[in-house]
Simulated assay, not measured.
Amino acid sequence: MRGRVRVAVLVDNTGEPRRCVVLQSSDEALLDQSTCRLMLEKARFDPARDRKGRAVAGVYRSPRVRWMFANGD
C-alpha cells in the first residue's frame, strides 16, 4: 500500500492540534485516517501570533505525506 496525503490541522492558541481535515486524499481511507490520527496524537506546534504577539489559533497545512509499506516479499 502506498499513497500521498495532504492535511490541514487546526491548532489552538496553546499549540495543541484540535482538528484535522484531509486536503488531498491518497485514495486509501486507512492512510488518510492514519495521517490525521498521527497529526492529532503526536504533532506539537508553536501557536500562531497576532500583530501584537499574542498567541492565537491557526491552521497548519502540511506538505504531502508519503506513505510506503513493504509487502514483505
Rank of each mutant, 00 (worst) to 15 (best):
M1L: 11
R2I: 07
R2K: 12
G3K: 06
R4C: 06
V5G: 03
R6A: 07
R6T: 03
R6V: 05
V7L: 07
V9S: 10
L10H: 11
L10V: 14
V11T: 01
V11K: 00
N13W: 01
N13A: 12
T14V: 13
E16P: 00
E16T: 13
R18C: 12
R19Q: 13
L23S: 14
Q24M: 13
S26D: 10
S26N: 11
S26A: 15
A29H: 05
A29F: 05
L31F: 01
L31Y: 02
D32M: 00
D32K: 01
Q33I: 04
T35H: 00
T35V: 11
C36E: 03
R37E: 07
L38F: 12
L38H: 11
M39I: 08
M39C: 15
L40P: 07
L40G: 04
L40D: 05
E41H: 09
K42D: 11
D46G: 12
D46L: 10
P47D: 00
P47W: 02
P47I: 02
R49M: 02
R49F: 01
R51Q: 14
G53W: 06
G53K: 05
A55H: 06
V56L: 10
Y60M: 12
Y60W: 15
R61F: 15
R61C: 13
R61D: 11
S62G: 08
S62R: 10
P63E: 04
R64S: 05
R66T: 13
W67V: 10
W67D: 03
M68S: 06
F69W: 13
F69D: 05
F69K: 10
G72P: 08
G72C: 04
G72M: 08
